[in-house]
Simulated scan of single mutants.
Amino acid sequence: MSYTGPDSEPPQPRRSPLRRPLTVVVAALVPGALLAWGVYAAVGGPDDAGGGDAEKPAGSSPAPVSGKPSASPSPLPAPGSLKGKVVVIDPGHNPANFQHTSEINRKVNVGTHWKECDTTGTATNAGWPEAKFTLDVAHRLRDLLEKRGATVKLTQDGDRPYGPCVDERARIGNEVKADAAISIHADGSGSGNRGFHVILPGRVHDGAADTRAIVAPSAELGERVVNGFVRVTGTAPANYLGDGTGLVTRTDLGGLNLSTVPKVFIECGNMRDGADAALLTSGSWRQKAAQGMSEGIVSFLRG
C-alpha cells in the first residue's frame, strides 16, 4: 500500500449504487443475513475503523510462538465482563521530551543501576516520532479495553511537559495494583531488521528491584500478546532477535525491574526500516496492532 501519512486512513471502498427490489423470499432471509453481518462486523470488516487490508511484510506468515501452535481465537468477552480489572498502558516516551533534554537526561535509580529519566525515542526516516506512534496506539488500546469494562490508566497522555521518568512509569502501575501493564514502543534498529517483539522481565533481585513474583505471570502475558498480535496484524515476529518467537527477556529496563505487577514491553516494529515504517504510519494497521494487544491482554485477564 502506498504511504498516505501517519495520521491518515486508507480510502474506504465505495458502495455500489445498484439497488434491486427485494422479493418475498429474500425478505424472509433478512433476519438471518443481518445476524451473519453482525458476526462479521464484530470481528472487523473492511469498513471498520482500522479494518482495511494490513500491509503484510513480504514472505511473512503468522508463526507459532516457541514452537507451539497458536490458540484458536477465543470469543471476545461481553461488554462489562472485565469490570474490576485494572490495566495500565504506558505510551513510551513523551512527544515533548525533546524540549526538555536536561530533565530527561537526569539519572534515576532503576534498582540495579542508574539510568536516564527517559529519552526522546526514535523516529521514522521521514521524521515521524515514536512518541506520537505510542500515544496513538495507547488511545486505541484504551478504547478497546474500556469497552470490555476494564479500568484503564495511561502513564501519560501528552498532558505533561516531559516524562514521566522510567521509575515513575513503573510506580504508576504498582500504585493502582494493575492486573496487567504494557509499555508500547517502536524500535530504531537497522534497515532490514523487521517485525515486532515483546520484552519480558528477567529474574532480578537487587536493590529496589525484585521481579521474582512477576516473572511467570509476565511471561504468560507476553506469550498471549504475541499470539494476539500475530493473529490480528498478520505480521511476523522480529527477524533480528528473539529466535523467531517474538519474545525477548531483559534485566536492564527500569520499567520492568521496578514493576510489582505483571508487565511487558512491546516493540511494534522497526521505524528505521521502510517496510515496517509503512505499517507503523498506517492508521488501519495501528488499529489492528491495538486489537492484537487487546486480545492478548483480555485472554490473560480471563485466565
Rank of each mutant, 00 (worst) to 15 (best):
G67V: 03
P64F: 03
P129I: 00
A42C: 01
G173H: 04
P31I: 07
G254C: 12
H139Q: 13
K153R: 15
S66V: 08
L141R: 07
V198A: 00
G283P: 03
G228H: 12
E267L: 02
D187T: 09
L135T: 09
C268H: 12
M293T: 02
G228F: 11
R194T: 14
G269W: 07
D243A: 13
P57I: 04
S282L: 02
A275L: 05
Q291R: 09
F133E: 12
H113N: 09
R20D: 14
G84K: 08
G92W: 08
T101S: 06
P95N: 08
F300A: 04
D187Q: 06
F229A: 01
G283N: 07
V226S: 00
L221F: 02
K153T: 14
Y162R: 00
K83A: 14
D167F: 04
E103N: 08
Q12L: 13
S294W: 01
Q291M: 11
S2N: 13
L221G: 01
Q287W: 14
G190K: 14
G296I: 10
V226D: 02
T120V: 15
A209N: 13
S2F: 04
V152I: 02
T151D: 11
L141M: 05
C165G: 09
G127E: 13
Q156M: 07
D179I: 00
G246C: 08
A27E: 11
F265V: 09
V24I: 10
L35K: 11
P21D: 15
D143H: 03
P161T: 04
L200C: 04
H113V: 00
A36V: 15
R19V: 15
A138K: 03
M293Q: 14
A236R: 15
R15W: 10
N239Y: 12
F300C: 03
T211R: 04
A27G: 12
P79F: 02
K263M: 12
S282Q: 12
H93G: 09
S8C: 04
G242D: 05
L241R: 12
Y40T: 11
R302T: 13
P57V: 01
L200Y: 03
L279K: 15
R148W: 03
R203M: 04
M1I: 08
K83T: 15
L154N: 05
V30S: 01
T4E: 11
S66Y: 00
C117S: 08
G274Y: 06
Q287L: 00
V86S: 05
D157E: 15
A178E: 14
P17Q: 13
L144M: 04
G59S: 04
S60Y: 11
S61E: 15
N94T: 11
G149F: 07
S191D: 15
P64C: 05
T249K: 14
I184E: 08
I89R: 03
P73V: 13
H100V: 02
G67C: 09
G283A: 07
L29M: 12
P21C: 00
A138V: 07
P11C: 02
K132T: 10
R106W: 05
T151C: 00
R171M: 11
G274F: 03
A180H: 10
R140I: 01
H185N: 10
D90N: 12
T260D: 13
G292A: 06
C117Q: 05
I214V: 14
G292K: 10
A54D: 14
A216T: 13
A213N: 15
R160T: 12
